[in-house]
Design a protein around this nucleic acid. Sequence first.
RNA 1: GCCCAUAUGGCUCAGGGGUAGAGCACUUCCUUGGUAAGGAAGAGGUCGUGAGUUCAAGUCUCACUAUGGGCUCCA
Length: 604
Amino acid sequence: MSENLIGYIDDQGSIIDTQSAGENCTAAPIEFDNSEKSLEIIRHSTAHLMAQAIKELYPDAQFFVGPVVDEGFYYDFRVNEKIGEEDLKTIEKKMKELIKKKYKIEKYEISKEEALKKFANDDLKLAVLSRIPDEMVSIYKQGEFEDLCRGPHVPALRFLHNFKLTRVAGAYLGGDENAEMLTRIYGIAFADKESLKNYLTMMAEAKKRDHRKIGAEMELFMFNEESGAGLPFWMPQGAKLRYKLEQILHKAHLVRGYEPVRGPEILKADMWRTSGHYACYGENMYLTEIDGHEYGIKPMNCIGHIQIFKQTQKSYRDLPLRYYEYGVVHRHEKSGVLHGLLRVREFTQDDAHIFCAPEQIASEVLEVVEFVDAVMKLFNFEYTMEISTKPEKAIGEDAVWEIATQGLKDALEGNSLPYTIDEGGGAFYGPKIDIKITDAIGRKWQCGTIQVDFNLPERFEVEYVAEDNSRKRPVMIHRAILGSFERFIGILTEHYAGEFPFFLAPTQVIFVPISESHADYAYALKKKLTLEGIDSEVSDKNDSLNKRIRTAEKQRVPYVVIIGDEEVQNHSVAIRNRRVREQYNLTQDEFMVELTKQLQEGKI
RNA sequence: GCCCAUAUGGCUCAGGGGUAGAGCACUUCCUUGGUAAGGAAGAGGUCGUGAGUUCAAGUCUCACUAUGGGCUCCA
């Protein structure tokens, strides 16, 4: 048996550890390295080692489950003491001590009946056992420590050297919000030291581009304790960035036949009762009372658009009718889930509702998908799409669901865009496509969504006059592309690490006049840029030239333009282009051409 | 909402039971410099909020607020 053998893979791709395999196993061996399967074994064993250490430090600890997850492993357990970040070091130290004891990891099997007796005093293990259908269960043992476990494990503790406990958290027993909360410790492990080090470095790098950190540095947005959680403020720099994004998207909507509309922030509660939000979404709504009537602040924009549609009589000739709004919505998210700009309580959706006939669904969805693709390409985003189909509890006829779901599939296949299917994951009122962006550190965020809705038109008795003069009910397609400006800008910030492309950058050009005599020329240029819709600043503070250049660079402004005697005389500019990291000189006219060209890149 | 942690001038952070420190930023002055921090002086906080313990509390305790890490991943 090889020194580095830690398991085998069978025909089905399942891992068999050395404890289970026996001497003459013919399956493909798994060597001790950083392959996916190898890491799975290593990390699972490290979780057990951690449990053993915890048991020694906290003898009353009871363990629930300790699986391998995408980002390492964790173990859920119950202790009487509080465990904080500081304690992780102690546990790590104990783990290292245990390794020195050179324990082998041994396995034996017992019947479930015996196991129930063995763990009679451990309600957590009994809970685990109750979910195992098998007759026989396995126990893994290392030194004094024994644990009910499916495996797989490395043969001995000597394989577990390169690990780090990363965080301590609370986790509900079985993920159930109403259940008891256990302590959870997360960790990561690799086969070698170098990989662990690289991983930790990568995490530190990712942290540097956290949108909250960059948002504060660049003065994009802020929160305020006195005003309340999850309520963002946009500072001038952030507002300039957001405005540019709004403008780019505004034009993109007009080109695609959308019409701008706007509904009120607050509507009578009866409206929300009719829509079903009051019953289904009421917990997340902010309600208030005015002159004896109950009102609700809108959590969604659909109702407003429906009222606008209904205000005048519509013909089949008007369809598809596309209304869009940068709709400000308020949702009472749980305090614990708020997260920078990525999850807030007030946000603005790039929301649109397309009223169309059922047979128009496919072509409309296709157009939206193309719109989404254009936006994603503009920012070089990777994204995936997922179609969610009819859930068990749903309204509407099967035939209509069929048309709508097929419409969604046709649209994606017609555009040769890959998608996955979430069977039964649709909303009760219709199927949907979710668009998920992968951000700079690999996290997936749901941003855009395309939902087909048969429900609201019904509830609000929306109608149009058909060709044969009969009254027909349109279908509504709800769609958002960014999802919300808040979340999208948060993701953009991390994606670009604050180095926004020229057409988005809050301040696009910063002029640095060498001395006071050059300031007038700088201000004249600034004015010229303003007329072209380009945001610029003049850095004429009483600081040294070097200092002002440094400050400008730190602000991540795409163009730093130095103005001295030479430039004033020749009507030229000396450019430090931060995006391409080059320095060069241009005439004023050439400069304007270059900037205008860059602005064009923001067109979709 | 729940678990754990954190909360000191605009920002980043040090301090620590006897009435607060640094760097950056800010203000003023000198300096007018050709591509990442010129120099000097100055102003600014009662230590998240409220209560409690104590002769005495940023410093200990409790509550609240806010922020951060988590709460699908099933022996």
